[in-house]
Computed example of a mutant assay.
Amino acid sequence: MLGWVAHAVTPHSHDSAGKTDTALESSSRGMRVLAISFAVLMVTAAVQAVIVVASGSVALLGDTLHNLADALTAVPLAIAFSLGRRAATRRYTYGYGRAEDLAGIIIVLLITASAALAGYEAVLRLLDPQEIRAVGWVAAAAVIGFAGNEWVARYRIKVGREIGSAALVADGLHARTDGFTSLAVLLGAGGAALGFPLADPVVGLLITIAICYVLRDAAREIYHRLMDAVDPALVDAAEDVLAGVEGVRRVESVRLRWIGHALHAEVEILVDHDMSVVRAHEVAVRAEHRLIHDLPRLRAATVHTDPDGPDGADHHAPLADHHTP
């Protein structure tokens, strides 16, 4: 009996059709958000670019470049969402969801480029100050930049949280930061109007610093995803769910990872060592069902059952030399 029960530890995975349909709908909503926000930000950047040429404001140039970079982040994210909808293959057995992480790296590089270019232009203008023209239009462009970014930020954050896409939420927060840097351009315009020409490049440098802070946060977010980091509260929640499943004596381990904007789980539970193979399988299926329905954005779970007892028994002795501490 013990030998049969020990082999009942064969993992069982569950990925319901409903979850798959939900994932496809989430990707479709994400694509729609990206398309609309891309159009809004491109129009915003285009209007600002015209005023940059007319005014020569380096602060507005930095803001325009940042808005353009923010709009372009929609491109790699859209490609990632599209790839994530593809079915798993024998080579990519977990599917293509991790394409979002690759898109995140591209986004970080785009933010880095915008920071470097904005800072370079601001330093040049500090060394060679120039009069700002059309100050009123510069102020108007700053307000336009704030309005466009704040609208996009609200839209991305709302939908990103609803579909569980950390990349989309982070991109929304990025847009919100862009909005506040647009308001900072007003300071440069105000300074220029009061007869302080250096106010414009100084604000340009401040905007560059703000972009660097966004870069730090975005890089940290992508690093966490690449290292399979999750919120410890999710692990606690999974353990609580499993502990409440009838037949589960103890939860041995819980491992969670994000694949795109969906969670996947691998867990080990202990069941009575006298339990039949069929009964142990039923407990595993109940545990999967509870996890998938009670843990937000969990799309699939693999449950490994181990026999609990008898005292002194080591059911994994043959594997002892293969487990690293």
Rank of each mutant, 00 (worst) to 15 (best):
D101E: 15
F81P: 10
S82F: 14
A74G: 10
A71M: 04
S55C: 07
L102M: 14
L65T: 01
A74D: 07
T73F: 00
L83K: 10
G62D: 00
I79S: 09
A69M: 09
A99I: 04
H66W: 14
N67D: 06
V75R: 09
H66A: 14
A59K: 04
G62S: 11
Y94A: 15
Y94T: 13
P76R: 02
G62V: 01
D70M: 00
L65P: 02
S55H: 05
G97Y: 08
D101G: 12
L65S: 01
D70V: 00
L61I: 05
Y92V: 11
L83S: 04
G95S: 07
A78I: 05
V58F: 01
G95I: 00
R91H: 11
R98F: 11
S82I: 09
P76A: 05
L61A: 11
D70N: 02
V58N: 01
N67H: 07
T73C: 05
P76L: 05
I79V: 15
S57T: 11
A88E: 05
A99G: 08
A103I: 01
A69H: 06
A103H: 06
I79G: 09
T64S: 00
L65I: 08
A87C: 10
A87I: 07
V75S: 06
D70T: 08
E100S: 12
G62K: 07
G84E: 03
T93H: 10
I79P: 09
R90T: 12
G56T: 00
A78G: 15
E100M: 14
A80Y: 02
R91T: 12
S57C: 13
V75T: 06
V75D: 02
D63W: 07
V58M: 08
A80D: 08
L65R: 02
A69E: 04
A71D: 03
G56D: 04
A99S: 15
D63S: 13
F81I: 09
T64F: 00
A78W: 11
R86N: 06
N67K: 03
R90D: 14
R85N: 08
